[in-house]
Design a protein around this nucleic acid. Structure first.
Length: 666
DNA sequence: GTAAGGCCCGTTTTT
DNA sequence: CGGGCCTTAC
């Protein structure tokens, strides 16, 4: 049964969804039904006889990809197992799995995340006898990223880092590892070097869609361009006003590049907002009009004025947190809103702690997204490090992590010996360690030698088990964790805090459960460990929360992109927080991006927007006077109602509250 | 040579 | 408050 596009979409959306051939640029304002349009467009392709395997849809986050795939499946009522809806990075992994051998890497390559990357740079620095403390490693890491993705060139001021960069690159290659930038840049390289490979992919992906186009980087754009330049059936959807990832290389100049590279394009603007009330939209429009560099658009809504925007100035950050909890509680009761109808947005992750505590104290169910990923937690990374070594023994960064964890007497001196061999033989640490344990005139004591032997054997044994056909990997991993006695290790590490040890161990069981779920899924039958490892490196958090209904959503503004909530609380609307002091310090021009960020935050709200701005705030261990964010002045006063403060909590009531909090945490 | 305890500092946003 | 790094104790 074909879908009646005309009936389901407004005129502009219809135009966008109906035109399948040729380049299409869609400027889609906040809340303009972009996802709906894309979903229908894909369904329309399928209706028109385009085969699912010829369609490629690229999104920005795993969450968006998952959601889009779900929505298309629901709409068409088809399984669509060969439809590619993926993030850029996950797509990069797929391409590399299929073709990285052309560049001399092996297929079981490891992906280094930010932390691994920093360790790798430190290792490279060691090779060159550069002491790590003379480097601002964070800055170096950013520079390397810019160089790799062509955002920056070597200049007289920065070329002193070039030897280190080259060493880092060599390090990655020698250890069969790639970093996040490589996931995009290496496919581009392969396509440039091997036109036949590119041809193959052009033949496969004849219809390409890109969501959140304003947040694509130059490198990502190159990749799209390569794939699309023959067929030219490429549809990009974006909103320059919502470009908030420039620090990661996003460049909304890409919209202009697209116009140049595909001059025959059709441009469509989606300007009807289906999400927010007039008040909210007016505030957003007024704010964003202060930006100079933007495409003019007239967002409008038919929803009506709605409730006014409210601002509240709490004394300090705990009052802010309590205010948010109380409001949510009372709306939940009085207005029959579900907890998941609330979004609480913050500029930085560290603002979440107090709000979380308050939710806990008030028994408000909530979930945090963004921030530190589940898979980045130390205890999880430890276990993953073992799995990575089992998958790719040459992965030195993870070898270093597990060599003496749990403690097995293999410390600095032993490592130094291993390093010597590795340098001499030009091999990985694992290979060097394997060698060292045999050497007759080994410089190691018998005790250490046997410890090393045990360690190497452990790796070999489990590697073999995992590689067996039809192996029960979950069981093997459980067994491994027991064999290394990770629990014992946690107890020793946290002697004074058994609770913490237990909590960490609990996380490990959760990890095992997640893995088991993955292993049992029919789609994953016969897939190797490497596939799983690569997948989770790209995941922001344990995106498994099936029951994500009935929970308040607490997240950074960045993480809220693409989402919407009935009621939105925007916390910490203070100067130095938004716009963030560091961002302005870096470059005063960043004010426009910070404004867009604020714009994104406001436009998440459907019915009601609250903003809170503390008078004082504890930063580290100091209480500092803050003040309202300058952006508040860019919102017309008549749209705002100033919230009367809650009555001060009386003495004994406060005490009572304190006791409550205490009992929650003890 | 290895392990434990003291000391210092704190990365804005994330695939 | 918590994690990484360095010094001191075995």
């Amino acid at each position: 049964m074909a879908i009646d596009l005309k009936n389901e979409l407004n005129d502009k959306q219809y135009l966008a969804a109906a035109q399948l051939n040729g380049p299409l640029l869609i400027i889609a304002g906040a809340g303009s039904g972009k996802t709906r349009m894309i979903t229908f467009r894909i369904a329309h392709m399928l209706d028109s006889g385009i085969h699912q395997s010829n369609i490629l849809a690229l999104t920005f986050t795993n969450k968006a990809a998952k959601e889009m795939a779900e929505r298309v499946k629901t709409l068409t009522n088809k399984k669509l197992t060969n439809l590619t809806v993926s993030t850029f990075h996950a797509f990069g992994v797929k391409l590399l799995k299929e073709s990285i051998s052309n560049l001399g890497y092996k297929e079981n390559f490891s992906i280094y995340d930010q932390t691994d990357k920093i360790s790798a740079i430190k290792e490279a620095a060691r090779e060159l006898n550069i002491s790590p403390d003379v480097l601002d490693i964070y800055e170096v890491s950013n520079l390397f990223s810019s160089i790799k993705t062509n955002r920056e060139k070597w200049t007289d001021t920065n070329n002193s880092f070039k030897p280190l960069y080259d060493e880092y690159q060599e390090y990655l290659f020698n250890h069969n590892s790639v970093d996040f930038d490589d996931l995009i840049i290496l496919p581009v390289k392969i396509f440039t070097k091997f036109p036949d490979i590119l041809k193959g992919y052009q033949l496969k992906y004849q219809y390409i869609m890109v969501d959140e186009f304003q947040d694509t980087s130059l490198a990502q754009y190159k990749l799209i361009k390569q794939l699309a330049q023959e067929n030219r059936n490429v549809c990009v959807v974006g909103d320059d006003d919502q470009s908030i990832y420039s620090w990661r290389g996003a460049n909304y100049q890409n919209i202009i590049n697209f116009e140049t590279d595909f001059p025959e394009l059709t441009e469509i603007k989606l300007e009807q907002n289906y999400r927010s009330t007039e008040n909210i939209l007016a505030a957003a429009n007024s704010l964003i009009s202060n930006n100079t560099n933007r495409k003019e658009k007239q967002l409008w809504t038919g929803i009506g004025h709605g409730k006014s925007i409210e601002i509240y100035y709490p004394e300090n950050e705990s009052r802010e947190a309590d205010f948010i909890s109380e409001m949510i509680k009372s709306f939940h009761l009085k207005e029959n809103l579900k907890y998941h109808d609330f979004g609480v947005l913050i500029r930085t992750n560290n603002l979440s702690t107090l709000i979380e505590n308050s939710f806990l104290a008030e028994n408000i169910p909530y979930k945090v997204s963004g921030g530190q990923s589940f898979f980045q937690r130390k205890e999880i990374k430890d276990i993953i490090a073992y799995l990575r070594i089992l998958n790719n023994p040459d992965d030195d960064i993870n070898f270093l992590r597990i060599l003496n964890m749990p403690r097995r007497g293999l410390g600095k001196a032993t490592l130094l010996k291993i390093r010597e061999i590795a340098k001499e033989k030009d091999c990985s640490l694992h290979a060097a360690a394997t060698e060292l344990r045999w050497t007759g005139d080994s410089p190691l004591s018998d005790k250490i030698k046997s410890s090393l032997q045990e360690f190497i054997d452990l790796i070999a044994e489990y590697k073999e088990m995992l590689e067996e056909e039809d192996s029960n990997k979950t069981k093997i991993i459980k067994d491994l964790i027991e064999t290394i006695n990770y629990w014992g290790f946690l107890i020793i590490e946290h002697q004074k805090n058994e609770k913490l040890a237990k909590w960490k161990y609990k996380n490990i069981s959760i990890f095992i459960e997640l893995f088991e779920k993955w292993e049992k899924k029919p789609d994953n039958k016969g897939k190797d460990l490497g596939t799983y490892l690569n997948r989770i490196t790209l995941m922001t958090r344990a995106e498994d929360e099936e029951g994500d209904n009935g929970q308040v959503n607490l997240m950074t503004i960045h993480a809220s992109k693409g989402l919407e909530f009935e009621y939105v609380f925007l916390a910490g609307v203070e100067k130095n927080i938004i716009p963030h002091a560091r961002s302005i310090e870096e470059n005063p021009d960043n004010i426009e991006e910070e404004r867009r960020l604020f714009y994104v935050a406001i436009t998440r709200a459907k019915q009601k927007l609250f903003m809170t701005s503390c008078k004082t705030r504890k930063i580290r261990f100091e209480i500092v006077d803050t003040g309202p964010s300058p952006f508040l002045e860019e919102i017309p006063k008549e749209l705002i109602k100033f919230h009367t403060p809650l009555e001060d909590v009386e003495g004994d009531e406060a005490l009572d509250y304190f006791e409550q909090m205490k009992s929650k945490f003890n």
